[in-house]
Design a protein around this nucleic acid. Sequence first.
DNA 1: CTGTTAGCGCCTTCAT
DNA 2: ATGAAGGCGCTAACAG
Lengths: 337, 337
Amino acid sequence: MRRSKQGVTMADVAREAGVSLQTVSRVINGRHDVSPATRQHIEDIIQRLGYQPNALARGLASTYTRTLGFVTNDFSDYTWTQIMTGAEHEARAHGYFLMIGSAERDPNDEPEYLRLLSERQVDGILFGRESREVNDSRYNDFFQQVPAVTVAYYPALKQVPTVDVDNVSGGRQAAEYLLSKGHRHIAMITGPEYWKAVQDRYEGYRQALEAASIPVDDSIIVIGDFSYQSGYKATQQLLSYGIPFSAIFAQSDQMAIGAIRALREAGMRIPQDVAIIGYDDIPAAAYCYPPLTTIRQPLQELGRIATQLLIKIVEGDNGVVNNEVLLRTEVIERASA
Amino acid sequence: MRRSKQGVTMADVAREAGVSLQTVSRVINGRHDVSPATRQHIEDIIQRLGYQPNALARGLASTYTRTLGFVTNDFSDYTWTQIMTGAEHEARAHGYFLMIGSAERDPNDEPEYLRLLSERQVDGILFGRESREVNDSRYNDFFQQVPAVTVAYYPALKQVPTVDVDNVSGGRQAAEYLLSKGHRHIAMITGPEYWKAVQDRYEGYRQALEAASIPVDDSIIVIGDFSYQSGYKATQQLLSYGIPFSAIFAQSDQMAIGAIRALREAGMRIPQDVAIIGYDDIPAAAYCYPPLTTIRQPLQELGRIATQLLIKIVEGDNGVVNNEVLLRTEVIERASA
DNA sequence: CTGTTAGCGCCTTCAT
DNA sequence: ATGAAGGCGCTAACAG
């Protein structure tokens, strides 16, 4: 005979209390149609017996598990981690847990993750992931079954609501700030070009220059991958071109800090010779040298709002109309620009 | 009538294949006692029908969920995040998912989290948390029910296996390195004193000084909280004492970087006037100025090994004897010391 | 306000 | 190598 892991079950409580299973169930679920006396009595017994409901059984009998999946490609990255933290807080506040999965090695693993998460009957899924174009019919099948919200716009998933930062505005803020300091030759180090966020920041940059009647010079725009290392390399590259620029807009703080290093090695002073503005406002930004002027993204809030939206959808709130929420970035002025 | 979320069930597959439920179950679970022909036939039908097993039902009928809980106090912190990443990878490699929970606000929430996780029938729990002394009988009750492993030694949980970094050795390495550079007056900025890791690093530091016949001078030891800010403040404090020191061992890279800032503001050169060694090897360490010499902790590996151990325990591997695994740190030499 | 009756989808045990 | 019966712990639906 198989031994259950579970010690005391609802049946034990019911027997002990001399009531039916259903009444115990009602108490557990906080229904109002139980007399105060029986409720109290049952609660005492639950307490005494140390009864714990079995979430698996509840999930099987009902249709929800109060579990959300969170899928990302990189849990070791600051950005996604912050988003996840916000999501976790919000989830917990609503009685949900987060089940996490990362499809780092191979983006093709992703549909497999979704399947696995759906087998586990998550009520919904949060996507905190790079915005890459994906053509895989498995996605569509999937998102017809399970409610989802993406954090950071995901072109492949047009039918899925999105919560993101307004990157066009963010890019514009960065360029405008530099412009306001009198810079006319503003280099840019971007992230991977297939990211929607990267394109948007580029667009904001373009808009700002255009408004100032300055032509965009693609020869002082270099593609990076958001890492320190890539900011460093990109700046060396920029320097090697011999094309004059007096400021750099790096699309991540890490790249900005890498850029600072390259600039310093080239004997340049910041911000006197070259001004730098980053993007993200990572904790190190305030403590690097010189302290980094940057565009802050409300990362945890992104996660919180996305989760809030997802839970609303999951719980059948028909008031959800907004299919794209865009949060504003903010200029944090420090010493690098 | 209630509609189930689930579309096609095992019964559908069985009917379609003209076999019993049980045979389908065997195929799903990869048992070997099914003839190749029927197996193939059933697999085809599963494919065609798009059948997905329901993990809830499996968990209810069997006794395992292939889900592990991961509890920490701070998901936004680099250290725990790295550990979690390692844990997630290892878990996935074994077919497990991680359910995450953070008890940040109030450590007293923790037992509540454990209860909630146990309601969800997790097979085991990983603790990635500060090593704080806790006296709460609920812990003991809990750990008798659910297998657990702590990452970072947890004094309250003596009966639970632990995977940690050898902090005594790490502290010794840091001090020895500084000693080898000729420093005799080595200040230290610690983390919160109730952390076991902090005490251990202190002990390593003490051992190294003792071996060099240098008395420990508590007046140049300041308590921080691992943050940039606290490293900055602690260093200002150190400077204000007027007690000479030529090197600082900061128990986190963040504090080391904060210290560098304070030192710079005080007009001191690094490492000429004051040498600094950090602890952790965060990504920023290589790119701050000057690049930080530090003690690297194998964080992801910590998470991986802890998870491996937990899974072994969960799956009833009686070969598990090691109740305390200690990983070694490594000196990363850069320019700050 | 409370109880009864049916499952939820799967796995375990025992037969055959 | 396959099938039948029973149950995991709980909730939905309906009755009273």
